[in-house]
Every structure is written in structure tokens, then in C-alpha cells.
Design a protein around this nucleic acid. Structure first.
Lengths: 217, 217
DNA sequence: TAGATTGTTAATCGATTAACAATC
DNA sequence: TAGATTGTTAATCGATTAACAATC
């Protein structure tokens, strides 16, 4: 609450927030007005205890004997996640994956605002993706000076990832959404990295099938 | 080891395996022959203790006084993850994201083999993605009967996800890689689901920026 | 052999669950 | 008011870390 007492929310809790936000949004869209921790737990395959603990990290959003008002929950968790912030975001690398992410993601729902796309291949310059013209990497510095984007999405080969990330930090980037198949390391404090490894994710399926009962019979 | 004593590996360990596999693969490619738990811990930002505990869930891959032979580790973890299995995989939904995943992912590195792409829009039928002709959903049953794919990648709108998933289970699918923005629920045992929520992932950045020290000054 | 490093047990830490008094 | 359900403390559970004997 006060300046000194930052309660330091645990990472386990933080990682659950977007999922809460999704389920709550769905319920609001369906017109549901209130929900108890027990009912929400049922829908999300969690325990009521955990839900109450999690929400109480941020404040007493519920009311005894009633439960939680869904609109209020949506608003509060939305604020915590910053979904209205519209952080200026740039995409680096307009290959297959980069273009799909640019066109597929509803950035405005996730607190982001895609304002620029760069690619090292100058032949791509000018062609439009998601309504934005692809720019050459050479224009990055002037663009960053003018726009000061805070988030960079990396859809580049792993060999280029670390070097480019360091450069982007020096240009003021504060957060990375990294699809480059390489865990970038940023020592600079206040810079946050989300390494997305789609390969790790699909391998979990291969693992599960390989180690399932019917396989090893 | 024996049929009765399945030691039941914890999920925390399993989720770390693909990352071990990546780092080990990188080191092998660089020609490194052996590594100690301490050195690997340093590279991966883990503790040596955790690495030894994790690896020992699967067997004694190391040697006292020496460390771990990297080729051996790569082989063993590869076997555990099933990276050579080449599970037959189909993609449902050839929109932006589906096409990008089909072309971008090296399925064979992850234990999978993409053998078919389906889309409900018949106008797309026949056009090629990643070397495969898009098929209409109406051909799914005969294709499944002939090929018996085990993994389905869902790149479809969330409204269609649950119903289609149920149908795919009835057609024999054993694992889902689900990008549909909806947590599908499969009650059928032996069917595994990996829900990928890219929105949740990017929201973590919005959260971090919103709650960082410089924002709340 | 001496040194290094594992495999493994024990100690700690943190996260989840249970319980219940507070209260709407 | 009585019933329901939260907020919160205490108990449990599981995962991580530390320690060290075994051994290459």
C-alpha cells in the first residue's frame, strides 16, 4: 500500500493472472454478474482457497456472503495487468512467424500497441503487414528516437538475437517478447524478457506420448 | 525401472527437460565434450543441485569426478523426450498463425511429423503450405482412418475449439497443441493437451512494465 | 593417490490447501 | 437474523537447495 510496503507478489501468482482475466472476461461477456471462489475454482480447475489467496494479494475484491462482482474483478485485474496501457511495441523480423504474430494478435487487448515493423532484408521494405509498412533496420535508430517504443518482439534467427537485444536495450527498449529460439540474457535491471519457446511446448506432447502407458505398455 | 516402479516424475522437472535439451544441443554443436553440473548451472542460471536432482530422476548419467558426457546426455534426454519418434501430426486451421507454424517449426526436431493440413474454408483447398496441400475438413475422417495421426495442432477460433477437439478425440487424436485462445477440456484419459496462450505471455510484459519501479516511481 | 564431482539424503524454503473467525 | 462466503491464519505438501559420503 504505502511506498515502503511492496508486498512482492510471487511469480506463481503473477503467471496465473492472465488466465483469471480470460475466464472473468468470458463470464462477463456471458452476462454473469457475480461468482464465488468455489464456482470460479470449478470452472478453472483450481481450488477456491487458491483463488481467494491469489486475489487477496492485490486487495479485498470480494464481499463475504456474496462472492465477487465480475465487472469489478475484470476492472481490477485489468488495471494490475495494464491492459489499457497500450505500450508502444515494435516487431523485429517480418518472416513467416513475425508476420503472423503482427496480424494475428489483438495487441490492444494485451496492453500493447504495435507501431513499427523492421526487417533486415531491405527488399521487404515498404510492403505492408497488419497495416504497417516494413522498415529497414537502418531506420531503427531515428524511429526509436522519435517514438520511444518500450516493447520489442523478436522474430529473428537465434544467431542474431543477443546482439540485437543488447542494441535495443541501448535504444531504450524495456521489455522483450522473444521468439528467437535463444534465451537472451539482459543484465540491465528494469528490462524484462519473456522467452517464448514453441519448440519446448510441442516437445511436451512428444514427451507425454512417449511416456504414456499405452506406449510402454 | 521395473514395470511396477514408475517413479512418477514431477511436472516441474518435465517442464525443464526441453530447455536442458536445447542447451546441451548447443554445447554439443560447439564441440564441448563434458560438463559438470556446476558449469551447466552457470550457463542455464540454475543451481548445480537442481541439475543433479533433475537428471537423476531418469538415471545416473554422470560420473563422479568427471561430470556429464554431453553426447550421452543429449542422447538420453532426447530419448526421454521422444525427439526421434516422428509422431504423425495434423494442423487444423490454415489462417495466418496456422500457416506460420506449419512453415516455421522444424517439427522433426521436436518428435513430430506434419502430414496434413485442414481448413474449413473450402476455397483454400489445394493451395500448398509447407509443401502440403490444404484439405477440406470434410476429408478429415477418411484421412484419419488411413493415416491415424496422433497429434493435432489447433489454430482455429475459440468458438469452434471444444467441439472440434471432442471430434478429433473420437477420431483417435492423442495430443493437442492448442492455439485457439480457449482452454479445451478433454476428460478422456491418455489424451494430453498443451494450451498455448500467446496473449497470456505478452501480458506478462505489460504487467511487468505497469508494475515496475519507474512506472509507479 | 588426491582431487573432483556425482548421487542421494537431509534441511529449507515457498506454494498450496485447509480451517475458521469475521462479516456481508 | 441465518446463511453464505470472504479474508486470513495455520497446516500441509512439494520443490529447491545444501551437505556430504560414495566413487571415479
Amino acid at each position: 500500500m504505502s511506498k515502503m510496503t511492496k508486498k512482492s507478489i510471487s511469480n506463481s501468482v503473477i503467471k496465473r493472472l492472465p488466465r483469471y482475466y480470460r475466464f472473468i472476461g468470458e463470464l462477463v461477456k456471458q452476462g454473469t454478474v457475480r461468482i464465488s471462489s468455489g464456482e470460479l475454482a470449478e470452472k478453472m480447475s483450481l481450488t477456491a482457497s487458491q483463488i481467494r489467496q491469489d486475489l487477496n494479494c492485490f486487495g479485498g475484491f470480494g464481499q463475504q456472503g456474496y462472492g465477487y462482482n465480475l465487472i469489478e474483478l475484470q476492472t481490477e485485474i485489468g488495471k494490475i495487468l495494464g491492459v489499457k496501457q497500450g505500450y508502444k511495441t515494435v516487431l523485429i523480423g517480418a518472416g513467416n512467424l513475425g508476420r503472423a504474430i503482427a496480424t494475428h494478435m489483438d495487441f490492444s487487448e494485451y496492453g500493447c500497441n504495435l507501431i513499427g515493423i523492421f526487417d533486415s532484408d531491405e527488399k521487404k521494405s515498404g510492403s505492408k503487414v497488419a497495416g504497417l509498412g516494413i522498415m529497414p533496420v537502418s531506420e531503427m535508430e531515428s524511429f526509436f528516437a522519435a517514438e520511444q517504443p518500450q516493447i520489442a518482439i523478436l522474430c529473428i534467427p537465434k544467431t542474431a538475437a543477443q546482439e540485437l537485444a543488447d542494441k535495443l536495450v541501448s535504444l531504450g527498449i524495456k521489455a522483450f517478447w522473444n521468439f528467437s529460439h535463444y534465451d537472451i540474457k539482459i543484465t540491465h535491471k528494469d528490462v524484462v524478457v519473456e522467452n517464448v519457446h514453441l519448440g519446448d511446448s510441442i516437445m511436451m506432447l512428444s514427451y507425454a506420448l512417449t511416456n504414456s502407458d499405452n506406449e510402454k505398455q
